[in-house]
Simulated assay, not measured.
Amino acid sequence: MRAMERIGILVGVFAFTMAVIYWAWTASTVIGVEWVGVIGLILAGLLGFMIAWYLWMTRRKLDQDPSDDPLGDIDEIQGDYGFFSPHSWQPLFLGASAAVCFLGLAVGWWLFIIGAFFAIPALVGWTFEYWKGPNAL
């Protein structure tokens, strides 16, 4: 986890350095400073520092992470990564309706509405897929 912290800090420092260089470069032109790029690089730097801060806070609360042990094996990082539904069709329907929605942004709002019409039941079906009993959908 320490290596990931350092990568976050490196991304933050790099983005802030590039923001200063980009600001100086665009300030020397006739048009003036191009603020969208400068603000985007500053936000990227803040994102890198935010990731490093989160990993640092997480590392402080936990025991030593197996990835920090130079003599550790890869199988020490095994564990439960979450529950994934093995036979669910809902993600396919949700992905297809999201594709129709995004296509609707380019083609027309009528297609977006059709995609949203199919996306809402797919999202509800995926969310409540494992509800059992009298209150099931």
Score class of each variant (00 low, 15 high):
Val124Met: 11
Ala116Asn: 05
Ile51Asn: 07
Ile21Asn: 03
Ala19Asn: 06
Ala15Thr: 07
Ile77Val: 15
Gly125Met: 10
Phe14His: 03
Ala136Tyr: 06
Gln64Lys: 13
Ala116Leu: 11
Asp75Glu: 09
Gly125Arg: 08
Ser28Leu: 14
Gln64Asp: 12
Trp110Asn: 14
Gly115Leu: 10
Lys132Arg: 15
Trp53Arg: 13
Val100Thr: 11
Trp110Ile: 15
Gly72His: 04
Pro66Asn: 01
Ala99Lys: 07
Pro121Gln: 09
Met4Val: 04
Gly48Asn: 00
Ile74Leu: 10
Pro91Cys: 09
Trp56Val: 07
Trp110Ala: 14
Thr26His: 01
Val20Pro: 05
Gly40Phe: 07
Ile31Lys: 05
Gly125Ala: 12
Gly12Val: 11
Val30His: 12
Leu111Gly: 12
Trp23Cys: 02
Thr58Trp: 02
Ala122Val: 06
Ala44Val: 15
Thr127Ser: 12
Phe14Asp: 02
Gln90Thr: 05
Lys61Glu: 06
Leu47Glu: 14
Phe93Asn: 00
Tyr22Gly: 06
Phe118Ala: 13
Trp131Thr: 14
Ile51Arg: 05
Gly108Val: 02
Ile39Arg: 06
Asp69Glu: 04
Leu123Gly: 03
Ala136Asp: 05
Gln78Met: 12
Trp35Met: 14
Gly12Lys: 04
Asp73Val: 05
Gly32Ala: 02
Trp109Arg: 10
Leu123Cys: 08
Tyr130Ala: 02
Pro134Met: 04
Ala27Asn: 01
Phe118Leu: 08
Trp25Val: 12
Thr58Asp: 14
Leu105Gln: 11
Gly8Ile: 00
Arg6Ser: 07
Leu111Ser: 00
Ile21Cys: 05
Gly72Arg: 09
Ala15Gln: 08
Glu5Gln: 12
Phe117Cys: 08
Arg6Cys: 09
Trp53Cys: 01
Trp25Lys: 15
Lys132Asn: 12
Ile31Gln: 04
Trp23Tyr: 10
Val20Gly: 05
Leu137Gly: 10
Met18Gly: 02
Lys132Tyr: 04
Leu103Trp: 07
Gln90Ala: 09
Thr26Pro: 04
Ile7Gln: 01
Ala52Cys: 13
Phe49Lys: 07
Asp80Gly: 02
Arg60Ser: 14
Trp89Ser: 03
Lys61Phe: 10
Leu123Arg: 00
Leu46Thr: 15
Leu105Ile: 13
Ala27Leu: 06
Asp65Asn: 12
Gly82Cys: 03
Leu137His: 15
Ala44Leu: 08
Asp73Thr: 08
Leu47Lys: 07
Tyr81Asn: 15
Ser28Gly: 13
Tyr130Gly: 12
Arg6Ala: 15
Leu55Phe: 06
Met18Arg: 03
Asp65Met: 11
Asp68Pro: 06
Ala52Val: 02
